[in-house]
């Protein structure tokens, strides 16, 4: 039946480290890349903190998994939607986030940003188009 390509969206709403959801969601995302589906990520609510710049875990003893987000581009996962209102509510701008990029094979491997800033209303439209929404 459904052997065509499906649209998977991983919606991240929780801050990293305080709970394991961000890390274990990222592990699913990396695995999903092997299935040749259309994969996108959303960072909204406290999920925007997952891709904050300058995460330093040396003194907390936590595993710093933020570098793994930088590898997403290499897995052809380059649609990372960040909700504008969530950033603003938290006093953040794009400058507070990691510069996540991918190399566009259709454009002579030019390096392009993976982060796409969207409004809450645009995000609602995007979610509506998905086949599978996995949120945490």
């Amino acid at each position: 039946m459904s052997d065509g390509i499906k649209k998977f969206m991983f919606v991240n709403t929780k801050a990293p480290y305080g709970t394991v959801y961000a890390l274990e969601s990222l592990e699913v995302v990396l695995i999903s890349a092997a299935f040749d589906q259309s994969v996108s990520l959303v960072f909204c609510d406290d999920g925007v903190f997952q891709i904050a710049n300058n995460q330093k875990t040396d003194d907390s003893g936590m595993k710093n998994f933020s570098p793994a987000y930088k590898a997403l581009g290499d897995y052809d996962i380059n649609k990372l939607y960040v909700e504008k209102e969530s950033l603003e509510e938290r006093g953040l701008t794009l400058d507070n986030l990691m510069a996540l990029t991918y190399e566009d094979e259709d454009d002579d491997w030019a390096e392009k940003p993976s982060i796409i800033l969207v409004t809450r209303a645009e995000l609602a439209d995007l979610m509506d188009e998905q086949d599978v929404v996995i949120s945490s």
């Binding site: 039946m1 459904s2 052997d3 499906k6 998977f8 592990e27 699913v28 695995i31 999903s32 092997a34 299935f35 589906q37 086949d131 599978v132 996995i134």
Partner: peptide, 11 residues
Amino acid sequence: GLGQLVEGGIQ
């Protein structure tokens, strides 16, 4: 493995 979750979503 986690692939079983993704495959579940596909199937």
